[in-house]
Structure formats: C-alpha cells, structure tokens
Design a binder for these strands. Structure first.
Lengths: 240, 240
DNA sequence: GATAACTTGCACAGTGGTGTGCAAGTTATT
DNA sequence: AATAACTTGCACACCACTGTGCAAGTTATC
C-alpha cells in the first residue's frame, strides 16, 4: 500500500506524516472533493512530491480515506440495538455526530467523483442496518407508516447529513450538534418535537457525554482525533 | 451578453440552440458542477466550439443559469403567504418541488465552485423569506421552539434539498415528490406525521395539481419546460 | 556519528480542460 | 437565389493538475 521501502517499521516521523496527509485530505476533500494534491500536501505541511512517498496515486490516497472512514463509521454504528426503534434511530444520529468529519467525507465522495460506487459500497452495511431498523419500526408502528421503508431510510440519511453540514457550517457546539441530529432524525421519522424531546430525555444512552479526552465543549469527535491506520480493524487485513 | 453579432433578432435555430445549451448545462451541472463544455455541448447536440457563439466564457454560461434559475425559484416562492406558518412552510416545500431542477442546480452551485458567493446572493431573498416565516411561526408557537430560528430555517432548507435529491434519485412520481417534500419540511418544523398529514389534508392549496401541460404523472415541473430567457423578468433588465 | 529512511526541489512528460482564430460548411430569412 | 446568420472542425496557446526520475538535503535510529 505504501510506496517507500521500509524493511519492517516505517520511521516515526514518516508515520506521522502519513497520518497528517490523511487528515489534511479528509479536511480539504470535505469542502472540495477535487482538491489538488498540492493543497492537501500544504495542509499537511509537506511538499506535493512527498505524498508520492506514501501513496502511489491520488486514487490510492482516496481509497485509504475510504476504508479508514468506512471502518470508523461502521464501528460507531456497530453495537446499536434497542427494542424501541425510535431510540435506535436517535442513537444512530448521535453516533454519526461523533464521527462527523468521517461521515461527511464519505458522503461527499459517495456522491461525486469517479469511484462513488466504491464509496457507496463501503457504506452498504451502514445503510442496511438503518433500513432494517426502519423496517422494524414501521412494523411496530413506532415510526411513521405513510412513507415506504426504503424512502424513509434515505430521508433519514439525508436529514442527518444536512444537519451535520449545518452544524459544521454554523460551528455549533458539540452538545448542540448532538441534540440537533437526534431531533432531526426523530422529526423525519414522524415524531412531533415534544415527543422527540421526551424520547431523548427518557433515555440515558441518548444523553450527551463530554469528550473523553477534552476539557471544554467541542473537542472530541474524531475531528480532532488522528486517523490512526486501523488499530482495531474490523475484518483484520494485515497488508505486509 | 451573447457573442454572436445579430443586428436585432437572433435566428430562430440559434435561439433554440442557446436554450438547448442552457438546459443541457442545467442537467449536467446537477450531477457534476464541473462538467466540461464538451459534455454540455454534446448534451445539447452541438459542438463545443459553437457554445462560444452564445457565451463568451464558461462563467458567463453559468452566470446565465444562475440568473435564470434564481428568477424562477424566486418567482415560485413569490406569493406565498398564509396566516398559518405551517401551511406557508409546506407551501414553500411544494413550490420548491415544482422547480426541482432549478432548485437543485442553484443549491449545487451555491456550495461548490468559485462563484458560490454569487449564488448564495441570488438565493438571499428566498432565504430571508423563509427566515421571516420561521420567526413568525416560532413566535406564534406554531413551529417548534426548541431550535433557534436561523438554525431551523437552515434545517428546513437542508431537509427540503435532501428530499429533492432523493426524489430525483429514486425517480419518484410528481405526486409523491410533492407529498414527500411537504411532509419532510413539516416534520423538520416539529409536527408529528399525523399532524403533518392533517395539515396537508385540511388545506386546498397544498393539494397536488396535475401538470398544466401534461397527461400522465411526472410531466411538468420546469424540468420539462424550456429555460426561456426571462419572459417576465423580475427586475426587468433589457440588455440590448 | 554512520546509515538508512525520509523529504525536497526541479525538470519533464502526459492529460484534459478553456478560449481563440479562421476557413469552409450549413441553414434561416428576405 | 442571395445573403447574412449560424455551426463546425482544426490548429494553437495556455493553464492546472498528475505522476516520475533523480540528486541533494534533512532527520530518526542504531
């Protein structure tokens, strides 16, 4: 995957740079999915040339973002299960918020760019999970029954994404973002705003928890955490 | 604005071609805001070279789409006013749906591209209108009071746009798109799905009306209507 | 402090896009 | 049928970007 010629372990600074590149790319590709390598390199404090020391091609770099981001998002939504599908949906919203940065690049690149298909694939498990919850919820009459399940799932996804956008754009606090995403998804799913707030209040797992690492508001959420290369890979795939 | 050297009136076929270019551009730029002139020309059944007979530069072409689209969208939302802000909001959703194609390009280009500021400006009146309605609605307790007006307005916009996306993507019928957008905006604004449906049922102006020109479903909606160059311009601006 | 690992700058080839000039063709208009 | 209005193809200059080779520097690591 990398391009250098390391006997076993890459040098420490090299490893850091690799991560810096990935983070810069994630950041810039969010705004412009066709951001140049020059720009990405600059964002990482490196020269364009040295990117090629880590990734053979632009596509390889993007591919890496894809797998890494996909892993984090999938992981974030992995253990969601609640008898009440409304709570499950709100939880999904909340977890998405905790991975805003990754979620947005994935979504961004899933729509545009030549490999949008690949990205769509990477998001498949997530989407299937959502759909199955929606299915259950409709059957249980916990969610609105006036919209087909597939459509509703798409709407939830769209609503969540646009809230993420807005939350970033307006630079909302972490706590507010958390609240908004849940409210938006619940609203999409058919609850009145009073019901939504009631659901949120009633369930401990929907409460906002301060960042583990952080001190003040707005701190956590992968945005600040480094894109470490698959520490706990899901389908463990050692390359070397 | 044009580039040819017409004494007074352009030739009939030339006028048609100009429109064909604009329509092709609107279509392609929806998918890819950086679609090439080559592609746009092909879509219009012309050669790239002849685009320059109608528009001096790419930017001029895009600028034209901007003003035309902005006019149509603004016009569509012009006479919306209802004592009940919930109805007004649903109406906005419905009108947006009737201009899907235009709304989506505008939104698309308002986010990306170098002139996103210009596009944002073109949408200003629309956004202000929405905000004022939201303000009123919150004050009247018709809309949710747990989200700040500015935020809520943005959320409505986002929700509407993502429904439009989904509706196009899934190729929903005109009637279904109409219904979905209203439901989505009303849900965002705090209504339960029962309330939303009740509001829609209760008000004649929210009912779906078959296309004026059309026969079956999915027919109207500016998508099919040509982008005539400002027949009833809003701020009448004769160029010659 | 020696060595291998990495970064950098520069030059270069290749690609795909924009915008222009011009000569030759086609087509609406009278 | 004549003419002006348009379209086309081609050649060209120009730009921004990707990807590569290489020689010279810098830095982690033993």
């Amino acid at each position: 995957m990398s391009t250098l010629t390391p006997s076993k372990q890459p040098r420490r600074d090299a490893a850091e740079n690799r991560i810096a590149i990935l983070e810069s790319a994630r950041l810039l590709l969010n705004r412009d999915p066709e951001a140049s390598l020059e720009a990405i390199a600059a964002g990482a404090g490196l020269s364009r040339r040295s990117i090629y020391g880590h990734f053979a091609t632009r596509d390889e770099l993007i591919g890496e973002i894809q797998t890494l981001g996909g892993q984090r998002v999938t992981a974030a939504l992995a253990h969601i299960d609640h008898s009440d599908t409304r709570v499950a949906i709100a939880l999904i919203g909340a977890r998405l918020w905790s991975e805003v940065e990754n979620v947005r690049v994935m979504a961004q690149l899933a729509v545009r760019g030549p490999q949008r298909q690949t990205f769509a694939d990477a998001l498949r498990p997530v989407r299937e999970k959502l759909l199955s919850i929606v299915d259950r919820g409709i059957a249980a009459r916990e969610l609105r029954t006036d919209v087909a399940a597939e459509t509703l799932a798409s709407l939830i996804e769209g609503a969540a994404l646009s809230v993420l956008d807005e939350a970033i754009r307006a630079d909302l606090s972490n706590r507010e973002g958390h609240r908004l995403v849940m409210l938006a998804t619940l609203g999409t799913v058919g609850l009145s705003w009073h019901e939504s707030n009631a659901v949120i209040k009633r369930h401990a797992e929907l409460q906002f928890v301060e960042a583990p690492t952080g001190s003040g508001e707005r701190e956590i959420s992968s945005a600040e955490q480094p894109m470490s290369p698959a520490e706990n890979p899901i389908g463990s795939e050692e390359t070397t």
